[in-house]
Structure formats: C-alpha cells, structure tokens
Design a protein around this nucleic acid. Structure first.
Length: 756
DNA sequence: CAGTGAGCGAGCTTCCGCTTGACTT
C-alpha cells in the first residue's frame, strides 16, 4: 500500500486500515471518491518525460521562483496548504482507539491533489518540499502517502530549505532525506487536541448560550485576555494629581521645564489647592540654571519583521487592522507590475523568524555601502529568533534592497507603498550602525523648586538615516539644549496642570497580537483570523481601534473559566508545546498524553452539559425603544446578521428593526447600519426612510450631537495617528481632535523651538 | 480609493493551522 512512503520514512509506522469511515456517504467523502475514480481511468497513461522530477511546495508564488532556479528537469507545483484533514461535520477522532484521526481530502481540494498525482505519474521521482516546520512535515506526509498509493513504486522523498535562494534550493535538491515521522506525530497530536477541545466546548455553548458559537484553545484564551483587561479598565479608579510647569524665555522662544523637587522633596501634588500654593511660592522668583549634565544613549536598530511585529507596527504606525496588513502584504509578495515585469517585492509574509539569507545580507550591505558608507557596520548583523520560532522562512524583507520605497511608489497603491516602505526601512535599518544620542538634562532652580528639562540630540544618526515611516517623528527628533550653569532665564509663566492617573488601556490589534505571541499562543497564519473570529461571533466589537468584549463575550468567558480553567489558562498552549517537543524528540507517547487530558475533560463537558442551567435568556437587553406597532418595549437581540431590536410581545407582535444609531438630519428618521450587497462590502449607515430619504455615510455615527449645528458626530478614520470625531454636516467645520494628546504635543513643539 | 440599501426570533452550527481563490445556493 504505502510502500514508497514507508521506505522513505524507514520505519514500522503501523498502517491501520483506514476504511472505517464508510458509514454513510457524506459530502466530504464524495469529493475524494470522485477524484479517485477519475485517476483510476488514467492509470494507463505513459510517462511523457521520464527524466522529470516533481517538486511540491506550499505556495504558488514560491513554486514559480523555485522552478526558475531549478530549470527544465524539474516541475514545481503548489499544494496551497493542507489537502487532507479531519472531516468538518463531525469529531473525526476515534477516542476509543488511540485517538486515531479520520483523514479525508478537504472539500474542494481533490482537484489539486489529483493534478499532483497526474504529474507524479509523468515523473521519475517526487520531492516533497513543503515548509520545514511541523505543519509542513504533516503536509508532506499526507501528500506523499496519497501519491504513493496512487503511483506505487514511485520514489518519493522529502527536501527542505528555509529560504528561497538559488543556493538554498540547489542544495536542498542535492540532499533529499526521509520524512520525520515524529514531527508528523506531533502535528497529529496538535491537530487532534485542538479538535477535541473545539468540538466539545462549542456544542456546550450551543446548548447553554446560543447556536453557532465557538470555543477553542486559541480563540477562547484571546477572548479571556480581552475580558480580563476590560475588568481592569472598569475597576480602575483615576486619581487626581498635579504637576507644575515653568515656561522660560530662552533665546527667542520658550523652554518648558517641569518641577521635580520642591523644598528638597520629590514633587507630589494631590489637588488644585496644594498646586496653587506651590505656584504662589515660586512666582516672582528668579530662575537660574543650577545643573547641566549629559549622557550618551545608544539606540540599536530593531530586527527585521516577523509577521507579528509587522502587524503590530502597521497597526501602530499606519492604523491598519491585522487583516488589512496581511492582505496588502500578500499582494506585495505575489507580485506587482514594476514597469514591464511583474515581481514579488517582499519575501513570504507569514513567518516567525528574523533570519536573513546571506545573499540578502550582502546586497543590503553593498547598498548601504554605496549610499550611507558611514553607517555600514564592520560586520553583517544577525538577529536571534524568538524561542517559539519554527524558523521555516526568512524574516519579512524586500526581495531587492535596490527597489527603494521611492522607486516603487509610482507602481503601488498608497497603502501598498506605505507597507512596503515600513518593511524596506526596517530591514535596511537592521543592517546599519546604531544611533548615538546625547541626552542633556538641565536643572533650573526657582526659589524652593527645582525644574527639569531635557533634550536628545543625535551625535550619530545611524540607522535613522533611512527611517521615515517606521519611527515616530518624536523618536527621530534631534534637539540641542545649550544651557550653562549659572545662566539666568527670564520666567514667562508658572502653570499648575491637572492630571489623572491613566488606567490600563484596552487591547488593540497590535497589543493583543503582541500578547498572544509572547504567550506562544497562535501562529503567524492565525493571529489575524483569530481576531476576525472573535468579531464574527460577536464576542468583541471595535471601538475605533480598541477591542471591547460584548455581553456575549463576557458570558462565554465566565462560563469557560469557571468550568474549564485549565483550558482557558494562558499556560495551556505552553504545556501543549512542551508535550509536542517531547513527541518530536521521541520522548513521549502522544496517545497516552492526549488520553490523560481528554478523558477527565470529556467527563467535565458531560457534567456541565447536564447540570448547567441555560443562560440563553440573559443575553437579551431590554431597551427604552418602544415598539412602533404595539407600544411594548423592545429588546436588543443577537441574530445571524448581528444585533437587532425585537418586540417583547413576541410571538404576538413580530416587529423587528435595526438599532437606531442617530437621528437623520434630513428627515428625522433613524440612521442604522447597513451591510451593502453580498460580497461583504463595507458597512455603511443610512436612513430607514430610504428610498424616500437617501441620507447615508460611511463614517460610524456616535451618540453625541454637534454643539454647533445639532447634526450628529461621526468617527473619522482617515487620520494616521488617531481616530477622531467630526460633525457629519458637510457645511459645519466642527471637529474633535483627541483631547489628551494635544497637551503633550504642544510641549514637544515648544521644546523643539528652543533647539537652535 | 470608492463605495449605496433585507432579513433576523428554534435548529445542523464548531476547532487550529497551512494556503489562495471567487461558476453560485
């Protein structure tokens, strides 16, 4: 049966009869049956190119590049990920018999699998070149096994490379090796565990809370993090405190300094009265520079991007969601028309590695040597990947450093260009020397108070020479503070400023991904989809960039943490990974380990299924909206298209309506969210009196009204550095900028003016 | 960057991790 694969694996892997799945012709099987029927008719086909070797990789873009490197003797094809997996419609794990998974051709993938078999028949050998990580090993194994069953006797082996360079690929084909069956087992264990957890917890939620809900090792922990943070936000009590600032005349501008010592003690001012007393005691006193000291600070460039860091930086610097970042990165990877030729601008975008190929290092160094010779370090910089890294691909970098952001900008859309610039800058900077800053701190004595101010000036700009987008203006700003001890400075003003301690902030795409990565939960290919899942299930919603749990999300977390604290614990995945490592090293038996987890877990699921009372009713929130058909109050419910209002008189009164977000300024009707035609167009907001009233907007309405004209305010999302509110009235100029940031920025501007 | 319109409440759902597409119910 699987002769070739067994030879290739070279072991005693037990070949179980895998035909126990014949109970009823399910949809999943039919695809495979049709597929094999088709291949059977073609077994007589003769090899047309007996010297050809078939190489199977995962990504089609990669296949193209590799084929170019290998030449005509090789045919390179892409599997596009997994082709064989557990059935979707049932558990598919035989828990009574060693947790044997039931593997089927994934629906819709039979065609790909078939074409691989067809090409294999024409070849003298097959090289399985899926990614050199756990999932890749499993893909290689499954495809290899399938082909060997269809084409008995065909030599099949595994090759691996973790960068797509001419040299790496040639080396790989020169040294084919055996499949690592322990790694395949580790993947199997991972897959089975995730299935057991997800397909047992989800039905529990269907029964107790609502149909269609889901739970799993990754999404449920992510949701718990978000809920825990929300509790911290809610329980935080802001405390008032005051600071004292002095504005000093310095050359022809103002210098701002903050009071740090008062009568020899650290400044702690609880209220306005105390602040006023301090100010009073200082006003009118002369200001003298009492100390000036300087220190040097070395700022190292950051390593090139991994997926997680790219998503974080793009979220923080460009305001992209992780989903958007990945979509754009995919386009840059697949290829863009540059002049007459089409080329991939970046390396593969799903990676956990910061490794860079030697060729790329050399190219970067030669480019830097040409344009910034003073910033070229003596040696190439090599960075260490994180501890959870599987290191199957290089870091995300430009495929060619000579294609600078400026050079390619005219071939790219604005967002593509900005993301590319981020990647290019970060990579080139990573191969440049550190920046060196001189931080000058000055103490200015006024009466009993010591005020402090400082400025950072670059002695060596280093890698900042190529950075424009990838760092804030603030990080790159260089100011000299030319003060001397004994110098007198005219006092312009002494101000007391009220502050409140800031509580923890809610998660954003950037910070939740950071948290998940640090906990080792999820993979580069799943960070963005995990956030999407939580949104799709209505477990969380977005409030501009913040991720906020819904009532439903909190209820799910509450139930799961109460009854399954071990699974919801952030260390669950870490412990799983340790177990998988041991499986890979042949130190443990996964079947036994899974069994130790599963049987008590399943028992618990059954108990909760029996005993927990249904919490379905709790989800509906009574509102003060009155039913316009019968006058009874309406409740907010979650339907399959999101939240809506329904009459409490159901089933006598079946009235439903969308949730009014604002009053239509044109006709007084309700403004509600609308989804646009099928095909997932962006949500927009229109008047319920349509088509009589055609008022609409794409900006999300807020519940505040414009103090100038009375129309409602919307969330404007266009600015890079912050979502802000603005009046929807096109003839009204009322704009809200973010209040809390203005204070700081003004201060920075003042310091900057003092610079020269 | 440009882009525009109903229904929903008792039923067939769900996991994580690989990878891109897209005839329509």
């Amino acid at each position: 049966m699987a002769g070739a694969v067994e030879a290739l694996i070279g072991t005693k892997e037990k070949t179980k009869k895998s035909s126990k799945a014949k109970a009823g012709v399910k949809k999943e099987e039919s695809a495979q049956k049709k597929a094999s029927a088709k291949t059977r008719t073609k077994t007589a086909e003769k090899a047309t190119n007996p010297s050809q070797i078939l190489v199977i990789v995962e990504s089609p873009a990669k296949a193209k590049t590799i084929e170019k490197y290998l030449g005509s003797k090789y045919k390179v094809m892409a599997s596009m990920g997994h082709l064989i997996d557990l059935p979707k419609s049932r558990l598919g794990v035989d828990v009574e018999h060693g947790f044997e998974p039931e593997y089927l051709t994934i629906r819709g993938r039979a065609e790909v699998l078939n074409s691989l078999v067809k090409e294999a028949k024409k070849s003298k050998a097959v090289y399985l070149a899926s990614d050199p990580d756990r999932e890749g090993e499993a893909i290689a194994y499954q495809i290899g096994k399938y082909i060997s069953e269809k084409v008995p006797g065909l030599p099949i082996s595994r090759i691996s490379f973790n960068e797509i360079t001419h040299e790496a690929v040639r080396e790989a084909v020169a040294s084919p090796h055996e499949l690592d069956i322990a790694k395949v087992d580790a993947q199997k264990a991972r897959r089975v565990l995730d299935r057991l957890v997800g397909y047992n917890l989800s039905p529990l939620l269907w029964k107790k809370v609502k149909n269609g809900l889901s739970a799993g090792r990754v999404q449920s922990v992510a949701l718990k993090l978000i809920c825990d943070r929300e509790k911290e936000v809610e329980s935080f009590i802001p405390e008032e405190y005051w600071t004292i600032e002095s504005l000093l005349k310095f050359h022809h501008s103002n210098l701002k300094a903050e009071l740090t010592l008062y009568k020899g003690d650290k400044v702690q001012i609880p209220d306005g009265k105390a602040a006023a007393a301090v100010v009073d005691s200082l006003v009118g006193k002369p200001a003298v520079v009492s100390d000036v000291r300087a220190s040097e600070k070395v700022i190292r460039p950051k390593p090139p991007f991994t997926t997680s860091k790219l998503q974080q930086t793009a979220a923080n610097r460009l305001g992209f969601t992780s989903k958007k970042t990945m979509q754009i990165a995919q386009r840059l990877y697949e290829g863009v028309n540059i002049g007459t030729r089409r080329m991939g601008l970046i390396t593969y975008m799903r990676t956990d590695s910061v490794r860079i190929s030697e060729g790329a290092l050399a190219e970067a160094r030669s480019w830097i040597g040409q344009f910034y010779p003073g910033q070229l370090p003596a040696e190439a910089q090599r960075y260490a990947s994180g501890k959870n890294a599987q290191d199957a691909h290089e870091a995300i970098r430009p495929t060619s450093v000579s294609l600078t952001p400026d050079e390619v900008s005219r071939y790219l859309a604005r967002d593509e260009q900005r993301l590319y610039a981020l990647i290019w800058e970060r990579f080139v900077a990573s191969q440049m020397i550190p920046a060196v800053a001189r931080v000058t701190t000055a103490d200015i004595t006024i009466g009993d108070g010591v005020f402090r101010t400082s400025a950072t000036a670059f002695i060596e700009e280093g890698f900042y020479k190529v950075i424009r987008l990838a760092a804030t203006k603030e990080e790159r700003a260089s100011h000299v503070l030319a003060l001397e001890v004994g110098q007198n400075l005219p006092v312009e003003k002494i101000n007391a400023v009220q502050h409140f301690t800031q509580g923890p902030s809610r998660y954003t795409d950037a910070s939740i991904i950071k948290a998940l990565e640090e906990l080792g939960i999820g993979r580069p290919s799943t960070y963005a989809p995990t956030i999407s899942t939580l949104l799709e299930r209505y477990y969380v919603s977005r409030d501009s960039r913040q991720i906020v749990p819904t009532t439903l999300g909190r209820m799910i977390t509450e139930i799961l943490t109460e009854y399954f604290p071990d699974v919801l614990d952030t260390s669950f995945t870490a412990r799983m990974e340790t177990m998988l490592d041991e499986v890979e090293e042949g130190k443990t038996d996964w079947v036994e380990r899974i069994g130790k987890f599963y049987f008590p877990f399943k028992k618990r699921v059954d108990e909760v299924m029996e005993t927990l009372s249904s919490r379905k009713g709790e989800l509906d929130e009574v509102t003060d909206v009155v039913c316009d058909k019968c006058g009874r109050p309406m409740v907010k419910k979650l339907g399959k298209f999101g939240f809506f209002l329904a009459c409490t008189g159901f089933p006598e009164c079946k009235n439903t309506k969308s949730i009014p977000l604002a009053k239509c300024p044109k006709c007084g009707g309700d403004i509600v969210a609308r989804k646009g035609v099928r095909g997932k167009k962006r949500e927009f907001y229109g008047c319920t009196n349509y088509p009589a009233c055609d008022f609409m907007t794409y900006d999300k309405p807020t519940d505040t009204l414009c103090p100038k004209c009375g129309w409602f305010l919307v969330e404007k999302n266009d600015k890079v550095s912050g979502v802000h509110k603005a009046c929807i009235n096109p003839n009204c100029d009322y704009l809200h900028s973010k209040d809390n940031e203005t204070d700081k920025d003004v201060g920075k501007e003042t310091a900057k003016e003092a610079e020269n």
